[in-house]
Design a binder for these strands. Structure first.
Lengths: 217, 217
DNA sequence: GCCGTGAGTTAGCGGCGTTAAGGGACCCGG
DNA sequence: CCGGGTCCCTTAACGCCGCTAACTCACGGC
C-alpha cells in the first residue's frame, strides 16, 4: 500500500486547512479502494496522510463527519449529472427516462458513496442530512421534470410529488440492489434499467394504447 | 437492561443445542431492540444469555453467522407471507399488487432483518447466500405469478423473469428507502406502495387504454 | 474409581473510535 | 535578542470490539 510511514513535514503557520484537504483526499482514495466505509479507519487515514490519529479530529468532529464529507464531495456532482440529461432531448417523457438512466449510472459509478448516503443505517444525524442536501435538490428537479411531462401531456396528470417519489424509489431499487447483491443473476444492467424506466414512465398513462417495448428474451 | 450477570447454571450433558437456542433468542431480541446489527455485540449477547463471549463460538462460526442465523429465522416466513396473498383474489393482476403490498409490509415489519439481508455490504459470503435462500424461493414464486398474469392476458407478454426482476427492484426501492430514510417527507406509506404497485403493473401494458388510478391529491 | 469428553471458562491479542494532556516550532511585542 | 502566545500536532491512554489459545471442571461410561 501507499503507507506514508514517514512523518509528514510540519505545516507552515497559516495552513491549517491544508491538512483537512489531504485527509479528505486520503479518505476518498481509501473508500474507493476498499469499497467499504468500515474498512476506512481513522487510523488508516491518518497513516496514509502521515499524521497521527488525533490530528484528524482537528478537522472533523468524528468518523461519520469525515465519511459524510467524502460522500458530500461526490454528491455535489449528482444533481448536475441528472440535470445535464435535459439537454439531450426535447421530449419530456424521454427526458424522464434519460434522467432515470443517469441516476442509476451515477449510483453504480459511485457505489460506496451511494451506499453511505442512501443505504446506511445512521440516517438520523444532522451531518447526514447535510451531506444529502444535493440529493434533495435533485429530487426537486425530478419533480419539476415530472411536472413538465404532465404539462406536455406525456404522462397522466396527478400529484407530481407522488409520481416523482414513485420514480425515485423504483430507480433506487435498481441501483441499490445492483450494488448490494452483485452475485444475483441480473439481466444486463442496461436492459434492466431501460425496462424499469420504460415500465415506470409508461405506467403513468400517457397516450392510450401505447405498446410497451418489454425487452423479450 | 435485562443483563443476566448471574452465571447461568451449567447445562446437563446432552444439551449443547440448548445454549444455541438461547443465544439465537437473545440476539434476536437485541437486534429488534437496537435496530442495528453493529449494536449487537458478541459480548452483549453473551452477557444477556449469562455466559462468557467465547461460548458463542461453540455454536456459531463468527458474528456474521449469528446475525445471518437470526435473519434467516425471520425470513423463513417471507415466502409464506407472500404466497398467502394468492388466496385473496382470483384476478392475477390484482394478485401481483397484493403480493407487492405484502412484500413492502414484510420489509417494514422486520426492518433490521431486511436491511441485513438486502441492504448490507457483506453480501458475498456463502452464509449470506444461505440465509437469503427463502428470498430466492420467493423470487421464483413472483416470476410464476407474473407468468400467470401474462397467460391470463392481464399484462403484456414478455420475459417473465425480466418483468419479475423489475417488479422486485421497484418494491425493494420503496421498502429500503422507507427503512433507511425515515425522515424524508414521504407520502403515507400505503399511498406510496399502492401507487408504485399500480404504476408497475399497469405500466406493463395490458388492455390498451387502461386509465391509471394515479392518486391525485 | 478412573478417564474421556462435552461445556464451558480465564486470559489475552490486535484492532477500533475517541479524548486528555503535552510539546515544540513559529510569530510578535518588547 | 528574548519571552510569551498560539497554532499544529503528538504521546499516552481508555474502553469498546471480534476472536483465539489454553485451560478447568463436572458428568457418564467402563
Amino acid at each position: 500500500m501507499n503507507r506514508a510511514r514517514d512523518r509528514r513535514p510540519r505545516a507552515p503557520r497559516g495552513s491549517g486547512e491544508r491538512l483537512r484537504g489531504e485527509i479528505l483526499a486520503a479518505a476518498t482514495r481509501l473508500l474507493g479502494a476498499t469499497g467499504d466505509e468500515d474498512e476506512v479507519s481513522i487510523r488508516g487515514v491518518a497513516d496514509a496522510v502521515g499524521v497521527t490519529p488525533p490530528a484528524i479530529y482537528l478537522h472533523f468532529a468524528d468518523k461519520d463527519d469525515l465519511i459524510y464529507a467524502v460522500c458530500s464531495q461526490v454528491f455535489e456532482m449528482f444533481d448536475d449529472a441528472l440535470e445535464a440529461t435535459d439537454t439531450t432531448t426535447d421530449d419530456p417523457v424521454e427526458a424522464l427516462r434519460a434522467r432515470g438512466r443517469a441516476y442509476v449510472r451515477f449510483g453504480l459509478d459511485h457505489p460506496e458513496h451511494y451506499r453511505v448516503l442512501f443505504m446506511s443505517k445512521r440516517s438520523r444525524s444532522a451531518k447526514h442530512a447535510e451531506a444529502l442536501a444535493p440529493g434533495m435538490v435533485a429530487f426537486q428537479h425530478l419533480t419539476d421534470a415530472v411536472q413538465r411531462a404532465m404539462d406536455a401531456g406525456g404522462i397522466a396528470r396527478g400529484d407530481a410529488v407522488l409520481v416523482a417519489t414513485g420514480i425515485w424509489t423504483s430507480l433506487h431499487g435498481v441501483t441499490s440492489l445492483l450494488i448490494s447483491m452483485p452475485d444475483f443473476p441480473w439481466p444486463e444492467p442496461d436492459v434492466l434499467v431501460d425496462h424499469v424506466c420504460a415500465t415506470v414512465v409508461h405506467g403513468l398513462g400517457g397516450p392510450s394504447g401505447t405498446t410497451i417495448p418489454v425487452s423479450g428474451h
